[in-house]
């Protein structure tokens, strides 16, 4: 598992060149924006912006394609399960009406409302995936730490984030090594040849050395950090954080505006609850 998503070296496109502070703040506000509503009119523009952002980063589409297929498949499966759990969920979200399109049994039916709700939900998931993809592809772990620090997260927590992201490729490498050495000792790990229970057992067998070797490295890393004087000061500055450029200022204006809009939206929804929980054009 080489993680193609995490880049440790800053790239050279427009979005890459933003400061960590801008990236993290914009991302947090966009998350609030996505989470706050199930409204197509709000989600669709962001979906388009997300696609533009992703294209502008010039990623390796070959590796990304795999992620997109997996994510789309998982989310589709989720939606089917959502539907199985409660086929009438649309009525709750779209204001009580129920327009049945296809009916299988008394309990299992497809109504227009449910279809609408589930497809918006799917779009919302894909949008949030797009945005997080743009974020992950554009940021380096150090910039992430710097950005989190700029929104007043204690710097030890910031360090946790940056080390964790830097450590993920190491986990992949360790996993491969352990797997290969176990196969060399004659353990069958091919998913096609081994039944499910054995596979769980083997996963655990790989897990134990992976966890032990990872935690044994804690001492080395922390000693190296201590020797460089980590944790002495009360505040911290970040080497990767550069001066704000013109693009940062534009983004600052945009995300501040968006933040105000989100605050307005949420507050107005609490004070004047709309008749139905989501925007539904066909009622």
């Amino acid at each position: 598992m080489k993680s193609p998503l995490l880049n440790l070296i800053p790239g050279d496109t427009y979005l890459h060149k933003l400061t960590g502070k801008t990236k993290v703040r914009a991302f947090v506000i966009l998350l609030v924006y996505i989470i706050m509503s199930f409204d197509l009119r709000l989600i669709l523009p962001l979906f388009i912006v997300g696609i533009i952002g992703l294209v502008s980063l010039r990623p390796e589409w070959k590796t990304l394609r795999y992620f997109f297929i997996v994510v789309a498949a998982v989310n589709l499966l989720n939606i089917v399960l959502f539907w199985l759990a409660n086929p009438d969920i649309g009525a709750f979200w779209c204001g009580g009406s129920r327009t049945v399109l296809v009916s299988f049994t008394k309990r299992l039916f497809i109504s227009l409302e449910t279809l609408w709700y589930l497809s918006i939900r799917f779009l919302k998931m894909i949008t949030s995936f797009l945005i997080s993809m743009v974020f992950v592809l554009s940021i380096t772990p150090s910039e992430l730490a710097a950005g989190l620090y700029s929104i007043k997260v204690p710097y030890k927590i910031c360090t946790i984030f940056s080390i964790a992201f830097r450590y993920i490729p190491d986990i992949g490498r360790d996993y491969e090594n352990i797997k290969i050495s176990m196969q060399a000792r004659g353990v069958e790990l091919d998913p096609k040849k081994v039944p499910l229970m054995d596979r769980i057992k083997q996963n655990v067998l790989i897990l134990v050395p992976l966890i032990i070797s990872s935690f044994e490295r804690v001492g080395n890393i922390s000693n190296a950090m201590d020797l460089r004087g980590y944790g002495r000061g009360k505040t911290r500055t970040y080497y990767c954080e550069h001066e704000e450029g013109k693009a940062d200022k534009i983004f600052k204006a945009i995300y501040t505006g968006l933040l105000l809009f989100c605050a307005f939206w949420i507050v107005s929804r609490i004070i004047y609850p709309p008749p139905s929980k989501m925007w539904y054009p066909f009622s």
Binding site: I163, A164, F165, I168, I200, V218, G219, S222
Partner: peptide, 28 residues
Amino acid sequence: NTKTVVAIAIGAALFGVLMNYGGIPVFT
């Protein structure tokens, strides 16, 4: 201290990876 910070970080990384790759789906 530094040791705890590093251990949490490595723990979080392992948690994130295992959550994605080390599981069998049960429900949504």
